[in-house]
Amino acid sequence: MRFLRQSLAVAAKDLRSELRSKEALNASLAFALVILLLFSFAFDPTAETTREISGGLLWLVFAFAGTLMLNRSFARELPNDCLDALVASPVPASALFLGKALANLVLLLAVELVSLPVFGVFYNVRWLPHLLPLLGVLVLATWGLAVIGTMFSALTVNLRLRELMLPVLVYPMIIPALMAAMQLTTVLLAGEPVTGDNWLWVRLLVAFDLIFTALALALVETVLLG
C-alpha cells in the first residue's frame, strides 16, 4: 500500500512538471503528426492496401514519438541534481521506477489518443467503433513500451549520447510488444473480432508486460543506486 502511494506520488510529480512545461509532450505530439504526414509520401494513402498496414503505421508513429517522451523521463531530473535528491529520498528505487513508468504511460497514451483521430481522418480509417478493444491494446502495448523505455532511460541518463543511445537500445527490445500491437490493431481496424489465433498476440502482450515489469522492478535498484 505504502509502495503504491509512493509510486503514485512520483507519477503525480512527473505529470505535474510535464503538464506545466509541456516540453516533451509538445515535441512528441508534433513529431507524431510530422511522421503521419511523411508516411503519406511513402505510399498512396488512399489505396485499399493502406488499411492492411494501418496497424503497423500507427505503432511506428507511437514508437518514434514515444522515445522522445521517454528520453526526458530521467533526463528531466538532471538539472539541479534532482535525481540525486530523488534517490536519496525515502522512496525505494522500484517505487520511483514504477511512478515514472506510470507517468510515461499516461503521457504516451495522451499522445496516442490525440494522434489516433488525426490518423483516422488522414488515412480514412474508421477506429471509433472499435475504441474499447483498441484501448485495451493501446494500454497493454504502451505499458510495455513505458517499462522498457523508462528502464533504459535510467540506464542511459548519465550518458553524453543518451538521446542517441535510447532508440538503439529500446527498439530491438520492444519488438515483441510492437509486433503484437501492430497485428492486433490491424485486425481491429479491419473490423474483425479478436478470436482464435489473435488471442495468442494478446497473451504475448500480457506476458511481455509481466516479465519485463518484474525484471525492471528487480534490477532498477542496482541501476539507480549502484
Binding site: 522498457i148 533504459f152 540506464l155 553524453r160 543511445m165 530491438p172 534490477l219
Partner: peptide, 25 residues
C-alpha cells in the same frame, strides 16, 4: 546495442553495472 552502450560510458564501474543490467534484458 550492448556493445555500443559500453563504448558510451567512460566510468568503469558505471559501465560494468549498466551493461550487466542490459545484458540480462
Amino acid at each position: 546495442g550492448y556493445l555500443m552502450l559500453r563504448h558510451a560510458i567512460d566510468e568503469a564501474a558505471e559501465r560494468a553495472k549498466n551493461s550487466a543490467v542490459l545484458c540480462i534484458f
